[in-house]
């Protein structure tokens, strides 16, 4: 399964502390030697600052999104409720028409029924549309929320689905999502954080595919562990890069596209759950990231549970 031994963040990298909330911004490069000239140090510092600014921008964007989702909730609640109420009104009207025009072939009854069926069909579409927005807004609110720090039992399939709802627009039409869901027990976790992990892996998978393609999500249980693998039909990750993809700051994307933090954050989140992320670079046939998580987490984190 694993392409190459150890994929944890490369400890040889010397982290440079910044004042921004204690996040570590490592020096790029292989880190095996310290930079030489002052120019070089300045360059690295500039780069670190740029990354930090980018991370801050993402955090701001997250807050903005959460705020918008929150604002949308009340009008959406009203629309959703009205949709159901109107459906009941139409049912009532239908009953009235049947009793007022007992003759099924009467032109009046036909005209009423015709109008009602149009209204009912339009309303069904509204219901579906509304459900989709509800899911999306629900996912956005859940996603951006970081205040709930309790571990809870969660259905990972539901967590994956809520993430899929968020990235749907990025995949639409271009990438097919194939789900092979196995039987998973509920696991003890921080669902919001896992959302973030799935989001990172799914967006990466989508970006790895040029043109049309496929993302395959497989889930299975293996004794006390659950495995969630996300494979893309892209060109895979070259063997020489496989050991570095989890390093923070490592990115192959252009500035503005990636922060180089996604996979390292994902890795940290999964490790804090007592799990690991395995990577099969795929040797040119698409990469597979597999998240392995324990069903029950042991140790101090359990004490967070109420």
């Amino acid at each position: 399964m694993q392409g190459d031994g150890d994929h944890r963040p490369d400890r040889r990298n010397q982290p440079v502390s910044t004042r921004g909330g204690g996040k570590e911004v490592p020096l790029p490069g292989d880190g095996s030697k310290l930079p030489g000239s002052l120019d070089e140090v300045e360059g690295l510092l500039r780069e670190s600052r740029a990354r930090l600014a980018q991370a801050e921008k993402m955090a701001e964007l997250g807050n903005l999104v959460a705020g918008i989702a929150h604002e949308m909730n009340t009008p959406l609640a009203s629309v959703s409720s009205n949709t159901d109420t109107i459906a009941l009104v139409l049912q009532k009207l239908n009953g009235l028409i049947v009793s007022e025009f007992p003759d099924e072939s009467s032109p009046a009854r036909r005209r009423f029924e015709e109008a009602l069926s149009i209204a009912a069909e339009s309303l069904r579409t509204s219901r579906l549309a509304c459900d989709r927005i509800l899911r999306l807004v629900g996912a956005l609110r859940g996603f951006a929320r970081h205040d709930d720090l309790r571990m809870q039992k969660a259905d990972l399939h539901a967590v994956i689905e809520s993430t899929l709802a968020l990235v749907a627009h990025e995949l639409k039409g271009r990438i097919k999502v194939v789900k092979e869901y196995g039987d998973l027990p509920e696991i003890e976790c921080y669902p919001d954080q896992l959302n973030q992990v799935f989001m990172n892996l799914l967006v990466n998978a989508a970006q790895a595919i040029t043109g049309p393609g496929e993302i395959r999500i497989r889930t299975s249980r293996d004794r006390d562990m659950v495995r969630i693998s996300i494979s893309d039909s892209g060109s895979g990750i070259p063997a020489e890069l496989v050991s570095r993809v989890f390093d923070s700051g490592f990115t192959t994307k252009k500035a503005g596209e990636g922060t180089g933090l996604g996979l390292s954050i994902s890795n940290r989140i999964v490790q804090s759950h007592g799990g690991r992320i395995e990577l099969d670079g795929g040797a040119g046939r698409g990469a597979t990231f597999t998240i392995v998580l324990p069903v029950r987490t042991t140790g101090e984190r359990k004490t967070n549970e109420h």
Binding site: P75, A77, S81, N82, D84, T85, V89
Partner: peptide
Amino acid sequence: DEEMVLTSLRNLFRLQ
């Protein structure tokens, strides 16, 4: 404080 919520709820109870 949102009139639209009041309308939705009032109509629901009126109907049901």
